[in-house]
Amino acid sequence: MTAHDIVVLGLPGSGKTTFLAALWHLLTSDEVETKLSLVTLKAGESAHLNEIAALWRRAKVQERTLHAGDRTVTMSLRNGTASEFELSFPDLAGESFQQMWEARECAPQVAASLRSSNVLLFIHADKIKAPGWIVEDAEDAEAAGLPQEAGKPVPWNARMAPTQVKLVDLLQSLQVPPLETGARSVAIVLSAWDKTAGAGMLPDEYLKAHLPLLSQYLAYGLDKAWTVRVFGVSAQGGVYDETGKPPKDEAQRIREMDVPSERISVVSAEGQSHDLTEPLQWLLP
């Protein structure tokens, strides 16, 4: 059987596990048409997949303890009528990438996974940290006639960097030794897309507006042989219940939907669907 691999990247809390949970439900339920279909239920880490998919069906937030650490999920899939193949997703913990940015090192097993030619890069569209300038705060305070509150100076720490800086650094690291591996395809997933859909922009436009440094780097900094496509993905379809907190009306509305797969929304320049396998199919050779 042919084997393909797609490495799943993203900072902590960028939506990687929710995507995998919704994908496993989508592939196992046959509720909507998908570009890739499941050949057999046998999968690497199937217990984990079933566990996170169960939480997803119940509209409950994924608990971080369930997906701590790095793991590789494998699935047997078929692309339309073509022959089947095994797809492996090294699902690396967001902390691994945080460590790459802050400590400038990564574990050997993480480095091995990062040499995949196919990259699924997650960015939480609603939790983008942009650089805020003091002088602009001063302008706002002056316009509102409010005094600025002086705080205690906080020393610099790499963790404070804007989201786009960390992502540019991650992509730069994939282009030079020891992680360089030649041309790659990168599917950028702007997760929690439903929360930002009001902006009325296509995913490409949203990325350019909210992550301008990353957008410039994708256009001019990547090797010409690399290909990039941006997807807006809502794998949850709304707000889910959190453990230990009162249930939410929105989560109840989502649970009441007859076809859970219809919670999912995938937006790209080519249109909108419920098919989470679209970005995966685009990455396959």
């Binding site: 002086a150 906080v154 404070m160 960097a161 800086v165 001019y220």
Partner: peptide, 29 residues
Amino acid sequence: YSFAGSSTMHSLERACHDSRRESGRTEAF
């Protein structure tokens, strides 16, 4: 001119820090 990469992003970020909100300052430094 568009940004196409940098090999000194930690130092650049550190240089920017004291003119950003996260520094807790009210005046750039």
